[in-house]
Design a protein around this nucleic acid. Structure first.
Lengths: 342, 342
DNA sequence: GTGAAAGCGCTAACAT
DNA sequence: ATGTTAGCGCTTTCAC
């Protein structure tokens, strides 16, 4: 089973390599009988062209790279197929790369581009650490989607929600429901991505409603547990409950964190939302199956991805560039908040 | 920012291309000063070698391919980093490819091998459709891990749990706790992978305990919803509850499915485990945060992966091959089963 | 210790 | 419609 090359196939068929190449690549200028004959042999011998050689030769691909920060980033669960479809609609293949939270996405992106001759890139999640480097070294169009970037980076394509505003929205919703002692499960202490922004929105909502900010109600996620995980939500919620601080509601900066927090509350023998109201962030599908269903801010992921793809297509065609599009979140009112106004 | 090639770097440094190559690849036979000088330029200009060209040339890599069936397969959540580490320990890089449930993994595997000159492959999840094709066309060592394969394929490496036996175990556990009317949320009707085996284990456990099999208590997952998903568990559990069939316990063939089933039970105003005991399968982390924590059969994923990696390493070194290793599952006794013996 | 040159498997321009 | 050939960017002999 030695690796067959295009030459072998050509020899087997008694044709030239370019004819085989044409047959494989649906080139119009080829006799359909020849083509069939070749494809039959290809199939029979299960020949698969060496993609490295192809990439090396081909001057430009129709491939878009998608770089996701955070393997298993639950927020993107199930979105890959959707991205694939959206890109396919406009004639692009896609190649996915998930990197861990620790990896430097700039370098990874550069490597992806060089390796694959990509047509464009979509960055998903996480935050952009050194935009300058990206600007300097990536010379194909790219768009950031649900990524925390410096907001004054107005020269690059960005599709996101306004984390600050949306956090404000949901905390304000708690307040409108009569809650005044509101705890927050924030990001890790050093978080400069969405965690920071969501905490800020929380503070602003309190301030706007004349509620004094109480640092004792801010539970930062532990940095020895995965960021935004249930395990982290569970752990810090337990501490919060044990701290003796009084509160009637909790804002967890992600749904998964809220899921962990639920459990801590139940462990303490308390009820949701009777004893504690809980809200999350992201509005992922799982919230629907939580008990009670979690009230959250839904990010319109599909729309955002469609928008990102569209933006990228425009950039590739040289039409438009440097647009920052913010989507509004949607208050996903479910069953985890109790109205305690009188 | 045109793409730099090794030639450009060579020119910039006033050396030949081979010297640059040597510098980049830690070749021993190179003057350390020259090397430093080159690497400085490389860094300054942020040169990244074109991997396609490299792959094309290089006779063999140290890369192992991991092919996962089912994008976002929750069962492998968080395992990738672990796999990466395990492979790294024995000096292999790894490249991950997640494919959707519908894709044909055989073809994908063949392409991966051809494209990357892989040293070995690990297949994760799903089932092997045409083992013959793999045998025929993949000429590097490979191991199947947590994959449903024809069990008489005794000539290939397989690491798995015995799905039938483990299902038997947990259903038997329910019976020992006094349950005799036990429903099952099975795989989709056409499931020939683990769903089939787990259903079989269920039947055997009933039989061994002298309980008559009642087809009315078998809820096959819907095929218009994702397989093994919460949404599916929720939907079919709702139907089951509405069906009028009596039962005191449910065995869901995956934890995620059980999660959806929980919700349907709560929706019906019932309690777990007081009204219905529920058990799952897989023992993923999330079970811990469910309320009540889900009793399940834990698959020892880490151990299985370590074993798979070890097996692969052996196969690569030509030491050993064609071993089928079955791991025992572990009964994860949590809080979702009520003892109703008297 | 370093450079020149061959060639990995493919595509595309050119020739026929 | 098909064959011939140059060359993509790299590694690796083989000289020096």
């Amino acid at each position: 089973m030695a690796n067959l090359t295009i030459k072998d196939i050509a020899k087997l068929c008694g044709v030239g390599t370019s004819t085989v190449s044409r047959a494989m690549n649906d080139d119009p200028g080829i006799n359909s009988e020849t083509k069939e004959r070749i494809l039959k042999v290809v199939k029979e011998f299960h020949y698969v062209p060496n993609n490295s050689a192809r990439n090396l030769k081909v001057s430009e691909t129709n491939t878009v790279g998608v770089l996701v920060k955070g393997r298993n980033n639950s927020f993107f669960q199930g979105m890959y197929t959707f991205i694939e479809q959206e890109l396919q609609k406009i004639g692009y293949d896609f190649i996915l790369k998930e990197i861990s939270y620790d990896d430097n996405n700039t370098m990874q992106a550069v490597e992806m581009v060089k390796e694959q001759r990509l047509k464009g890139m979509i960055f998903l999640g996480g935050m952009i650490e050194d935009l300058d480097k990206i600007r300097q070294h990536i010379d194909i169009p790219y768009v950031f989607c649900t990524v925390a970037v410096d907001y004054n980076a107005t020269d690059c394509n960005l599709v996101a929600i306004d984390d600050e505003k949306e956090s404000y929205r949901i905390v304000d919703y708690l307040i409108k429901n009569g809650h005044r002692k509101i705890a927050i499960i924030a990001g890790q202490k050093g978080d400069f991505a969405v965690g920071r922004l969501r905490l800020k929105g929380y503070k602003l909502a309190l301030e706007a409603n004349g509620i004094e900010y109480n640092p004792g109600l801010v539970a930062y996620q532990r940095d020895d547990l995965p960021d935004y995980s249930s395990a982290n939500g569970y752990a810090v919620m337990k501490d919060l409950l044990a701290s003796g601080e009084e509160f009637t509601a909790v804002f967890a900066v992600s749904d998964l964190t809220a899921f962990g927090a639920y459990k801590a509350i139940y462990d303490a023998g308390k009820k949701i939302p009777d004893d504690y109201s809980v809200v999350g962030f992201d509005g992922i599908e799982m919230t629907k199956y939580m008990y009670p269903a979690l009230t959250s801010v839904r990010q319109p992921v599909e729309e955002m991805i469609m928008c990102a793809v569209e933006l990228l297509a425009k950039a590739i065609n040289g039409e438009d560039t440097g647009r920052q599009i913010f989507f509004a979140g949607e208050l996903l009112e479910q069953d985890s908040v109790k109205d305690i106004t009188h």
